[in-house]
Amino acid sequence: MAQAVVFWVCAIGAVAAGLAVFRVDSMARATFALLASFVLAAVPLLLLGLSYLGILVILMMIMEMVVMAVFMIMYMMNPAGLMPMSMVHNKKGSLAISTGTFVVLAVGVLLVDWPQRQGVPPPDVTFALGEALMGSHMLVMLVIGLGLFATIVSAVVLSHPRGRYDRFGDDLRRRPPDDPIPGSVDARSLTRIFGVGR
């Protein structure tokens, strides 16, 4: 009973918050409506007994949506929604796509011959997850590791306006580096902060 109540409250809330993303004018509100939708969608994971995954989704989504807000507000016009504007573009096309997707998924839900559960869930699912990661799914983790490395490198290459040649000079010998605002981890700063006073 309690489970059903929680499920329906979260389900309706998630859909409502998802709709709100397109109904509000403000980028900030849209981002946090999306966050609310994600958090509410994470609760059913808890209902399934996947405590770790459920809380992890909440944790990750908060961090990622805050970062998302940073970019939404940087690059979208009218971030506070103080000017009247519409969040919806290409109405017909998107309506067709979303209706099509919904129909395919709904038909799938109804028509697929869902398998019966075989065996019982492990007593500690988090432990089982860890074992799977360290055992049968190790390759996944390694590939993701390299993927993340590539993400870091490409993000820096694509987004950072200055590179090492701007900072250290063409022969990479300039010390300290020439930055508009100095940081804290280079030889000069570290000596002054951790070294003896003048």
Partner: peptide, 20 residues
């Protein structure tokens, strides 16, 4: 993709007595 909208927004005038 933003230039055009900006020009539009400038015509929007003030909100609550302050500009954007």
């Amino acid at each position: 993709d933003m230039g055009g909208h900006d020009a539009h927004m400038m015509h929007g005038g003030d909100v609550a007595g302050l500009r954007m």
